[in-house]
Design a protein around this nucleic acid. Structure first.
Lengths: 343, 343
DNA sequence: TTGTAGGCGTTATCAT
DNA sequence: ATGATAACGCCTACAA
């Protein structure tokens, strides 16, 4: 559907522009720009005339032109491993909601747990000159870090605060969380403990949890945990596969720490089905405190981490950075071990 | 971090531009543009020189300038009720993955189940001149539809094909799905059936499922279903609240159809805890076939709908439209009633 | 408070 | 196959 042109502006793309509005309102296009960007700089009288013209013409500003002229994009890039994980989805939603209030849009990249894909995504997204990047974890390819550094965009890293961030971070300590789990399992009397989680080279956050677990077990004079590494992306059912691998390799295992509740829940339900008593025969601890964790029987012992707060906080950190705070302090969110029936 | 300038281009934003690359490669900037956009139009010889210059200078094209000059944005806007629903997240992920291969980014808006917020989001996103919109459902405010029509952007609607789409749709029939559930419940001998789902004015898809259910019950000469409307957004735990409301208002109810598996699962687990036998005393049917549906005991009878396929298909429909197909046919995806133990 | 001039970095178009 | 020129629609900087 072609739109007819108003005013006497030269034929462009056939869409209403700022100068069309200016003509209609009898002002310069600069004034229109002000009414939109800094209304307080314009007389109420003219502001009204301009706003009327905007409404009558159904004028919609062109963000690309605005970006080019102002050299700023109102876009933030978020790169996560995958949107099809409720924790990342909740995080991203919170980020979107937080930034939307400032007129900022979010563009999402799914790295599929690969730092190489992450690098590629960063390079592509850089073309949009985002105001900032929100990344997952602290581990990236050298080239990705170079690209980021050279472009000078602010970067906020999430989900991990165990090593130094590129710029600043909003996350939690996976090591501490894993350590808490290890201490709990040791305290409750578990002796032969296993860890089931994403492969270390794919998921350094899960790896941190394993490290914390191992440390706690060592402190408690327990043997080191058996570790089962799952190839990512993983499905919920993989919890059962992990359970099987553990029982096959170490039948005497009396506790399993899963790096995600999805895995823990499927394993727990499978134990119920098989008549394997939880936690008497096998204690189970998850990670993430998913919705259903408190509803299964026995209820799942897990670690709560509030991905939504992480999403909001990372956005706020970015905004602070953009508002001039040169180096806002990283935020370490507290995780919380929630002890329920399964361990 | 300020970047030093190369070549002799006039001082701009201090970032490498196409003409910097052109200087370096000893060609015009137009040739650089071609190397990036239509490499086949350039001699292999010059192409190599240009690509070398690009690499040496770490040149990154400016998408905003590209958008402005070409009058096309490489952005698609997706508006869903909320990202924190695994089905919508899976859908969006598939959309992102599909479009990414064509260099298109996705911008997401969360309508929070409100057509008014949806309208507002559409208006804002229109400023980015997206190549198209992917919306949820077929119900929008008149003004939203006007905005869309006037801007001339292609629109693909998802999650519903029960009425006429604005443009084209990739979804399924909620009425048919609800009808299937009703028929199953009737056939298995349930007589007093209840429906628990999002409020009709917020979730017209759930409403469609209710309509289908009611029709099937009527056809089977059963009394109309009791309907419990939940205020959105809902949490998983609301399944228990819905269960309680049903049992309170109609204690003789022998089957409940929940409009989402999250609700059905929490209700089912609660029944287990209370010793209410499923399906003997109360049959339960969900919607969505979430990961855990097959893992709980009894396994959840539900309707599978493949949100990921919907996400991919809607993107493909949009691409077809952009590639010239004036009015691609809507795609009606098949739902599938999966009968397991709970009903 | 408002207007004028110039430029943002790229692509389209037309020449060569 | 490559180059010159003119937009694209808006904002910054400065002038009135």
């Amino acid at each position: 559907m072609r739109r007819r042109r108003f005013g006497n502006a030269p034929a462009g793309t056939g869409v209403i522009t700022m100068s069309d509005v200016a003509n209609r309102a009898g002002v310069s296009s600069q004034t229109v720009s002000r009414v939109i960007g800094r209304p307080e700089m314009v007389t109420e009288e003219t502001r009204k005339r301009v706003n009327d013209a905007i409404r009558e013409l159904n004028y919609i500003p062109n963000e690309a032109a605005r970006n080019l002229a102002s050299n700023s994009s109102r876009v933030v890039a978020v790169v996560i491993p995958t949107l099809s994980s409720s924790a990342f989805a909740a995080q991203v939603k919170a980020t979107i909601d937080t930034l939307e209030m400032r007129g900022i849009s979010v563009i999402i990249g799914n790295s599929e747990y690969s730092v190489l894909r992450e690098e590629q995504i960063i390079q592509t997204l850089l073309e949009r000159r985002p105001m900032g990047f929100i990344l997952t974890g602290l581990h990236h390819t050298p080239r990705a870090m170079d690209l980021l550094r050279q472009s000078g965009v602010p970067v906020v890293e999430t989900w991990d605060t165990d090593t130094a961030p590129l710029d600043c971070a909003a996350g939690f300590s996976n090591i501490a969380a894993g350590h808490d789990v290890g201490s709990l399992l040791a305290a409750r009397g578990s002796r032969r403990i296993a860890f089931v989680g994403g492969a270390a080279h794919q998921d350094s956050r899960a790896n941190g949890r394993f490290i914390g677990l191992a440390k706690a077990l060592e402190e408690a004079d327990l043997p080191p945990p058996l570790r089962i590494e799952l190839v990512l992306p993983m499905s919920t059912q993989d919890g059962i596969g992990g359970l099987d691998q553990v029982l096959q390799r170490a039948p005497m295992t009396d506790a399993i720490f899963f790096s995600a509740d999805s895995l823990a829940l499927s394993a727990l339900l499978e134990c119920n089905r098989r008549g394997l008593r939880v936690p008497e025969q096998l204690a189970i601890c998850g990670f993430g405190d998913f919705d259903l964790a408190s509803l299964v029987t026995p209820a799942l012992t897990t670690v709560k981490i509030q991905p939504d707060v992480m999403g909001r906080t990372s956005a706020e950190l970015l905004l602070a950075r953009l508002d001039g705070d040169d180096k806002p302090a990283s935020v370490v969110l507290q995780h919380q071990l929630i002890r329920r029936g399964s361990a």
